[in-house]
């Protein structure tokens, strides 16, 4: 996976923005056949259900089975990177063919039209004015040639995978996780950049508030057969959907079937979002093993981006010199 990892790191930030919606409806609900407190296994978090409900599905919380099928088919065609486009930009945009992608092919089993279930409109609540201004500044920096590594995303810098959270979110590439359990410890391990969280379920308290971490400090407890994980102490530098260091995530992991975990997340961050919000989706048993994703060790992409930016500036400077003479 390490070879694949670096090449794809650059395209991910581009394509995460381009989620493709569609339309269709129906009912749902998760039958809880108990898997007990055993969350262990290798899990695939991919789904084609979008994080936010597409605007053309406003007011429609669920697909019908027929609509879900149509939606999956439509996305499969739209996303197909093996389909060659017209020569030029359209074709270059598909340079990474289907072998590189891992978006999943199915909507969530509930047939919901968005991962977000709260608020009821399936949309992330607005950012506060301060958080919006900060997000706009970061977006502008991403559009401009980077001054230094900090102008690029955390995935390209190989610091934290964009999907590992918390909260965990489905992404377009590498949705593989493994959960380990022993005694009062649960480990949530992500293939992406070998990020892992060791979650104690022994009733211990969060670490002192002045210690801030990229992935926060997670504490778990069981409510029936559901693992509830409370995470605070974020450093605020992952900017999850515009969140800052006050991000507080509550996750619920329930093994509803031998081959399924229902994953629910609740987000609070009063300085970033105008109200709390949350969502849910399903992890499915994965077919293979987890492999090493050595991202930083082969990160030629970041050097390439930065040196290209400097070369462009030099070229522009020479050109303006020439024009003076």
């Amino acid at each position: 996976m390490k070879l694949v990892g670096l090449l794809v790191a650059c395209i991910i930030s581009v394509h995460l923005v381009a989620q493709t919606p569609a339309s269709a409806p129906k009912s749902a609900g998760t039958a809880a056949s108990s898997g007990g407190r055993d969350l262990t296994g290798i899990w695939d978090t991919a789904t084609v259900t979008p994080m936010e409900r597409p605007k053309d599905l406003a007011g429609k919380a669920y697909f019908t089975p027929a609509e879900a099928e149509a939606y999956e088919k439509q996305l499969a065609i739209e996303n197909d990177r093996d389909r060659r486009g017209k020569p030029g930009a359209d074709d270059v945009a598909r340079a990474y063919n289907e072998a590189w992608w891992d978006r999943g092919t199915k909507v969530v089993p509930s047939l919901r039209t968005s991962l977000i279930v709260d608020p009821a409109d399936g949309r992330i609540p607005p950012l506060t004015p301060a958080a919006r201004a900060a997000a706009q500044k970061r977006a502008a920096a991403l559009q401009a040639p980077p001054n230094g590594p900090e102008d690029r995303g955390i995935q390209e810098r190989c610091i934290v995978g964009v999907n590992v959270g918390p909260p965990i979110i489905p992404t377009v590439y590498n949705n593989n996780f493994q959960i380990f359990q022993s005694g009062n410890t649960v480990v949530v391990f992500s293939e992406m950049i070998h990020d892992y969280r060791v979650i104690p379920t022994d009733g211990s308290k969060h670490i002192p508030s002045n210690i801030r971490l990229w992935m926060g400090d997670s504490r778990g407890h069981w409510e029936g057969n559901t693992l509830v994980v409370d995470t605070t102490n974020f450093n605020g530098k992952t900017h999850f959907r515009g969140a800052d260091e006050n991000l507080h995530v509550i996750e619920r992991f329930t093994r509803v079937k031998p081959d399924q975990i229902l994953y629910q997340f609740h987000i609070e961050d009063p300085t970033a979002f105008e109200r709390p919000w949350g969502g849910e989706f399903t992890f499915n048993k994965a077919k293979g093993l987890i492999y090493e994703y050595a991202c930083h060790e082969g990160n030629y992409g970041l050097s390439g981006l930065l040196s290209a930016a400097r070369a462009e500036e030099q070229k522009a400077a020479h050109k303006s010199e020439d024009q003076k003479h």
Partner: peptide
């Protein structure tokens, strides 16, 4: 890859 849960009555790092 089916994993039985290990019910360890064991020692924890935290205790």
């Amino acid at each position: 890859l089916f994993l039985p849960l290990v019910c360890a009555s064991g020692l924890l790092a935290q205790t």
